[in-house]
Design a binder for these strands. Structure first.
Lengths: 180, 180
DNA sequence: TTCAATATGTTGTATAAACGACAAATTTGA
DNA sequence: TCAAATTTGTCGTTTATACAACATATTGAA
């Protein structure tokens, strides 16, 4: 139940690294950011970086996941069903997240970003489905979560591609009757 | 010549503490800020605070000194004489510093702040005098620095009291013919 | 291409920071 | 005014971070 709470130094150092990375990715391309840049900005030793992250791609992955999770506001979904309100708010979280990314320089990593978004969505949908259908078998719920995650992500891609003529709410609501 | 450069953790922790203190002093009165408040904001342990500072007054002193020194831009004075330009820039540094303090909540500590400003000024003037009169004896230069520091500080008090009718440059220039 | 410079990861050892417990002082509010 | 709660300041032990040295990529300019 109560995990052996992590050392505050770890939380602080990770925050310093992640904040520095976000700062730098607002200034230059991801491919031009080095570990040295990050650790200098964060005022930590380069070796300490490797204590917390595999490499710079691992950092990208964890930063994006965390930012996306904040956008998703997962606390809100505790004991929540997969209703219209939840789907709309998830869809808006994704579009907001992608909007915030457009200020950053991650060109050439669109695939990685897409994968991260989809993986996080799958986790969220799986939790929601477990709430709603506690008796159903695990495999069915997992496959459903996969499909929903691809579906919602794809919808966000198409919405942007279509020139954002309608609001994200309106757009996703068009599909909801067929989903639930 | 080359001092055994301080551990980066020390620099980082001091910065975290000082930044947090400045942040908090923009939110509430100095007397209402506790060591716990600061260390929570800075994400460091309370014991670590005492590793770096005697107490909260020591922190106030060091923060103000540092902010003032940044305003004074001491690097600029290296090998500089005590000419009109330098005096004007010192005077403006003080008035700017006091202006930036007015956004913070240090009511009841005006005397402490005044003392800190004067002490820093004394150091700066002493250095300048040493540049200008390397042959003169130490005691004379020290007393002169004391008088100049009180004088300039007093001028800043009177300038503000007079309603700031003239710009700080104009105000201090009135006295310069009698100083150099 | 070549080669110098820079970046990446990895180690063992030294040190700053976290923890938690403590007594003493100060603040609060009943 | 008194008692409870909070804050302050200190100490010994454990742990994360700094350092410096290293071999190995990767980059970039001649």
């Amino acid at each position: 139940m109560t995990q052996p709470k992590t050392d505050p130094r770890i939380l602080r150092t990770r925050k310093l690294i992640m904040d520095s990375f976000m700062e730098l990715s607002g200034e230059k391309e991801f491919k031009d950011i080095t570990v040295k840049d990050i650790t200098t900005e964060a005022m930590i030793n380069r070796a300490t970086f490797y204590y917390h992250f595999e490499d710079i791609y691992d950092l990208l992955e964890k930063v994006l996941s965390e930012v996306l999770l904040v956008n998703l506001d997962c606390e809100f979904y505790k004991n929540e069903k997969l209703n219209e309100e939840v789907i709309v708010s998830i869809f808006m979280a994704i579009t907001n997240f992608q909007k915030s990314l457009s200020n950053r320089c991650h060109r050439g990593y669109e695939d990685t970003i897409a994968r991260i978004i989809r993986e996080q969505l799958e986790i969220v949908f799986y939790k929601l489905l477990c709430n709603q259908h506690p008796t159903k078998d695990e495999q069915s719920l997992k496959v459903t979560a996969v499909m929903l995650s691809w579906g919602i992500y794809g919808a966000s891609v198409e919405w942007r591609r279509s020139g954002k003529k309608v609001s994200p709410e309106e757009y996703i609501k068009l599909a909801i009757p067929f989903l639930i």
